[in-house]
Simulated scan of single mutants.
Amino acid sequence: DLNKMGMGISMDDFGTGYSSLSYLRSYPFDTLKVDKSFINDITVDHADLKLVAAAIAMGQGLGLKVIAEGIETEEQYQLLLAHQCEYGQGYLFSRPVPADEFELLLQTDVIHS
């Protein structure tokens, strides 16, 4: 019903807490958001990079959009691009801003595309 209204469902904080793999079978998710705690150390911890790469591949294999949360450095961004992560959010792009300021950012094309 939500999809018919033009809304989608995202699994937030994937890999932590209650974001279980079994939920991916149970709910019609559109988006998988990889938790910031995995993104933090992908430049220095090979295991974290492998886990993130696996989450990206799995999400895309299930036909989901995959968003990396908490991208703070250009090096993280480049690693995620190399692993075909199509979407990201984090301080590298912008600090949180009020809606009117965000609209201005979109109009001035300051945000990475």
Results as ranks from 00 to 15, higher is better:
86 E>H: 12
110 V>Y: 14
30 D>N: 12
76 Q>P: 02
88 G>N: 02
61 G>V: 05
54 A>W: 14
10 S>K: 09
98 P>F: 03
57 A>S: 15
94 S>R: 01
58 M>Q: 05
88 G>R: 00
25 R>K: 11
105 L>W: 09
46 H>W: 08
79 L>G: 08
13 D>H: 11
43 T>W: 04
108 T>F: 13
97 V>R: 13
102 F>C: 03
106 L>G: 13
12 D>C: 09
66 V>W: 10
58 M>L: 15
18 Y>L: 09
86 E>V: 14
102 F>D: 04
7 M>H: 14
73 T>I: 01
2 L>R: 09
30 D>C: 06
5 M>V: 03
84 Q>V: 11
22 S>V: 06
95 R>G: 07
45 D>Y: 08
18 Y>V: 02
3 N>C: 07
87 Y>Q: 06
7 M>N: 14
106 L>R: 07
93 F>M: 05
69 E>D: 09
68 A>L: 01
13 D>P: 05
20 S>V: 01
111 I>L: 15
105 L>K: 08
76 Q>Y: 03
2 L>G: 10
32 L>Y: 07
25 R>W: 07
86 E>N: 13
104 L>D: 15
100 D>A: 01
41 D>Y: 06
66 V>D: 05
81 L>I: 05
81 L>F: 06
95 R>A: 13
19 S>C: 08
59 G>D: 02
108 T>C: 15
89 Q>I: 04
54 A>K: 07
82 A>G: 09
49 L>R: 06
2 L>K: 07
79 L>H: 09
105 L>H: 11
47 A>V: 13
36 K>W: 05
21 L>A: 10
25 R>L: 13
52 V>Y: 02
38 F>R: 00
103 E>V: 15
77 Y>Q: 04
111 I>D: 11
56 I>W: 01
71 I>N: 01
4 K>E: 15
48 D>Q: 06
13 D>C: 07
47 A>T: 14
77 Y>S: 06
36 K>A: 12
50 K>W: 13
87 Y>N: 01
87 Y>T: 01
34 V>L: 00
68 A>G: 00
102 F>R: 01
46 H>Q: 15
6 G>N: 03
20 S>F: 02
98 P>Y: 02
45 D>L: 04
2 L>F: 13
86 E>R: 12
82 A>C: 08
69 E>I: 04
46 H>V: 15
83 H>Q: 04
84 Q>L: 06
25 R>C: 10
81 L>V: 11
69 E>G: 04
76 Q>F: 09
95 R>P: 10
87 Y>A: 07
22 S>W: 03
29 F>K: 11
10 S>A: 14
12 D>P: 02
23 Y>I: 13
113 S>V: 09
15 G>A: 04
54 A>G: 12
19 S>P: 05
60 Q>F: 06
98 P>S: 03
91 Y>C: 10
17 G>H: 02
113 S>L: 08
23 Y>E: 11
92 L>A: 09
90 G>D: 10
74 E>Q: 10
50 K>C: 11
71 I>P: 04
104 L>K: 14
43 T>K: 00
46 H>F: 13
24 L>I: 05
30 D>T: 06
101 E>Q: 11
110 V>S: 15
69 E>F: 07
31 T>W: 10
30 D>E: 08
39 I>N: 01
21 L>V: 11
42 I>Q: 00
41 D>V: 05
83 H>A: 04
4 K>D: 14
80 L>A: 06
64 L>E: 03
36 K>I: 09
79 L>S: 06
21 L>W: 11
3 N>L: 12
7 M>S: 15
45 D>K: 06
